[in-house]
Nucleic acid binder design. Structure first.
Lengths: 239, 239
DNA sequence: CGAGCGTTTGATCGGTGTCAAGGATCGTGG
DNA sequence: CCACGATCCTTGACACCGATCAAACGCTCG
């Protein structure tokens, strides 16, 4: 059950048992349900077993900025639980099943079993890498490039998580949420997405994105997958 | 020498010896000198002993986005060295002295001495928290608010690192670099800073920022220090 | 004293935001 | 199965923040 997570790092021997033996509570969160609120002092970390969740902050003028999206298999919330007070919100995008693990158990396994500890540490470093790319995306790219970039990221992450294909995947987000990922307004996201569609780069139907021309989308999105730090066998899927 | 770093976490017993015994090489980097280039495969992590460095990315149209600033005492580059291929550049802002530590030694100490490992892990989590705040800053705040926020962050980090006072500190950055932190243009940074100055919120002389009205600056910058995860005794400095 | 870099200022342009309204779609309950 | 309300998407007109272009000014260092 939890093992896919560990696969993202190097494979381990009987470390798996230890992972499987972790104490945890399963929980289902409805869409829009909160997993953590800013200011909470969470006592559990959580592993996402299915569904999508996002982290976000609300700034002074009431605007919302989404800082990351997580999909099945991701560890969410080492951040908040290890640091004490939550500095952001974590909310479900779709219905999501999570496994809650006490923070003490997380700390313990990390140091009892170095291979697991390292894998978790690397996971937080990859998270950081994605944050940096988002800073650059929001700070220095125009609307069309930003959105194309975001679509590329989702494509690769979806595929590498085994949730779909990079050239046709489910994106359970409204345009308003895409706007909050990219620092744009919903109206402008709409126009920009429409532009990509009209130009034959993608097509959209409901919650599905089909990439008509991956090479072009990656170019338009100024996208290079290096920052995702995927393993080489996950990368060869694309091109 | 390296111990200030560990102070940012809980205090430790003879873990200190282990830290002090870490193999390392000292190096001085001139302003604008690179510590890591995107695409490198660094083999050492580095601890900043003095000076300032910044991480940045160059996007497709040639624009640069700075994703973080580091000051004396920070660990830079766990990121790049542990992850394999560097996904961003690290460059010196001012003359900087760094201690280079082999990645294997970092891994080893992290797991041999859990208290140190945890401290380093927490450090990467705090980095992540700052990245998230920057995403929100660049994505959802207007120019004046962004800059005020950035000035507040530097103020508190400078003071908590023991490098100066929060209400009057050295900021060794050009307006162009501030622009690259905030996703603005140098021209607009100039006008905006000037606005804050004219309104009596700050005054600037060369490389020194004096905060005339901290409360006001924090308000204008929509600033709350929670995301820095400072210890309470570091926080009481500022009200 | 001159070169180079950073700062300052003005004029103008354009990408996104804002406001507003209509149209689609979906889930729910009758 | 249909009606309804809510949510989301789409489109248009217009405003504005910040970008761009250009030039002058002021340090600092050789």
């Amino acid at each position: 059950m939890l093992r896919k997570l560990e696969y993202s790092g190097p494979l381990d021997a009987r470390d798996r048992e230890a992972v499987l033996a972790l104490p945890h509570t399963l929980k289902t969160i409805e869409p829009h349900g909160y997993i953590v609120r800013e200011g909470d002092r969470p006592t559990h970390s959580c592993l996402l077993r299915s569904g999508f969740v996002y982290r976000h902050k609300i700034v002074g003028n009431g605007a919302r900025q989404i800082c990351s999206i997580h999909m099945s298999g991701d560890i969410v919330d080492l951040q908040n639980s290890l640091l004490g007070t939550a500095d952001h919100n974590v909310q479900a995008l779709s219905r999501a099943e999570v496994a809650l693990i006490p923070r003490e158990a997380v700390k313990k396994i990390a140091f009892d079993r170095p291979a697991i500890g390292l894998a978790m540490w690397l996971d937080t470093l990859v998270d950081g890498s994605i944050f940096r790319e988002w800073i650059a995306n929001v700070g220095r790219r125009d609307a069309r490039t930003r959105l194309a970039h975001l679509l590329c990221e989702f494509a690769l992450r979806t595929e590498s998580a085994g949730l779909g294909r990079h050239d046709a995947y489910t994106l359970p987000m409204t345009q308003e949420q895409l706007a909050d990922c990219t620092g744009l307004t919903p109206v402008h996201v709409n126009r920009t997405l429409r532009g990509l569609d009209l130009d034959g780069v993608i097509t959209r139907t409901k919650r599905t994105v089909t990439v008509e021309d991956w090479k072009r989308l990656a170019e338009e999105g100024d996208f290079s997958s290096a920052y995702l730090h995927l393993r080489s066998d996950q990368l060869e899927l694309v091109q």
